[in-house]
């Protein structure tokens, strides 16, 4: 952080480009991060072009092809590369469409949590006093519950489904962003450039969101990637417990919940594949997150 904000006051086009170049230099040094990024981009492409990539519709039922194994196992059929589920839906197609759900969940949850968290955090950190106390105590209350448990109860209130799950998870993630922003704002507030801007007559809104905030972004970005992957995990967990996206949606956690009855009967693919999809997605995002942290956090760069 210390390094980035020195330049920020005089941020011109060339210095921004230089910053980016420097960022990419550190980021690309981390091989895992680059692989993660590649996988992530691949996932985005899959999600966007799902209707063209997927061989079948996600809800199309082929009643003559129920519980077929993947192609490489005996009994598999060429039309269904990764096999079919209990009502004859193509698993590959469902997984491809499922990428849409997961990425969508990640984006929405992170955006809500980030925007809300930054807003509350900046206010708390800038004004301090009773505003700060109220906001931070409220965040303490949220943090006092285990996140998944709180999300579970919240989603039961809002109503099981994708929207409910996303709102609940975003709400539960809020405090992390609030705390981070608040701490960063409090640290930045006393710095010279802020004082200078204040003297120059900048209003509090401008000070808060235009002058201070851009310099607190690094930890927030790292936290955002972490939230992105956690949101996917938690949404899948809620789906697994029956409170997330509802069938026949091909959300991966929901698919797993549907597949639970097959763990003893030998149809391993119904159980294994959706979970693998979740793992790969989350892993890719976490790799990117690690890379981002290394590239953005100069203190860790040394190590």
């Amino acid at each position: 952080m210390a390094q980035t904000n020195i330049q920020s006051g005089t941020s011109t086009d060339s210095s921004l480009r230089r910053q980016l170049a420097e960022f990419w230099y550190y980021f690309s040094e981390n091989r895992g991060a680059v692989i993660g990024l590649a996988v992530f981009i691949l996932l985005i492409i899959t999600a966007i072009f799902a209707p063209w990539i997927a061989p079948h519709g996600p809800a199309d039922q082929y009643r003559d092809a129920v519980l077929l194994p993947p192609i490489f196992q005996e009994g598999g059929r060429a039309g269904y590369l990764l096999g079919t589920d209990a009502v004859g839906r193509d698993i590959l197609s469902r997984l491809i469409y499922g990428a849409r759900y997961s990425l969508f969940i990640g984006i929405v949850v992170t955006c809500i949590a980030l925007v809300g968290g930054i807003f509350l955090g900046v206010i708390a950190g800038y004004f301090r006093g009773w505003v700060d106390t109220v906001i931070m105590r409220l965040m303490d209350v949220i943090l006092a519950f285990p996140s998944l448990l709180l999300a579970l109860v919240l989603v039961a209130i809002i109503g099981p489904g994708l929207t409910g799950a996303m709102i609940s998870i975003a709400l539960v993630y809020q405090p992390h962003f609030v705390r981070l922003t608040r701490a960063a704002v409090m640290a930045e507030k006393t710095r010279d450039y802020v004082v200078a801007a204040k003297v120059a007559g900048a209003g509090p809104l401008r000070l808060m969101f235009k002058t201070i905030l851009p310099n607190c972004m690094a930890p927030l970005i790292v936290q955002a990637t972490l939230s992105f992957s956690n949101a996917i995990l938690d949404a899948a967990a809620l789906g697994f417990l029956g409170y997330g996206a509802q069938p026949p949606a091909s959300e991966w956690g929901t698919m797993l919940a549907d597949a639970r009855e097959f763990i003893a009967s030998g149809q391993w693919w119904v159980v294994t594949l959706p979970g693998l999809a979740i793992l790969i997605t989350v892993l890719a995002i976490n790799l990117v997150g690690d890379g981002l942290r290394d590239a953005l956090d100069p203190k860790l760069k040394r190590s």
Binding site: L256, A264, V271, I285
Partner: peptide, 21 residues
């Protein structure tokens, strides 16, 4: 990092399938 990214409900099902079943 794989452990950190693990959907543990799936991990559990997988272990039951492998180790127990």
């Amino acid at each position: 990092l794989i452990g950190f990214s693990m959907p543990i409900f799936w991990w559990g099902l997988l272990l039951i399938m492998l180790v127990s079943n």
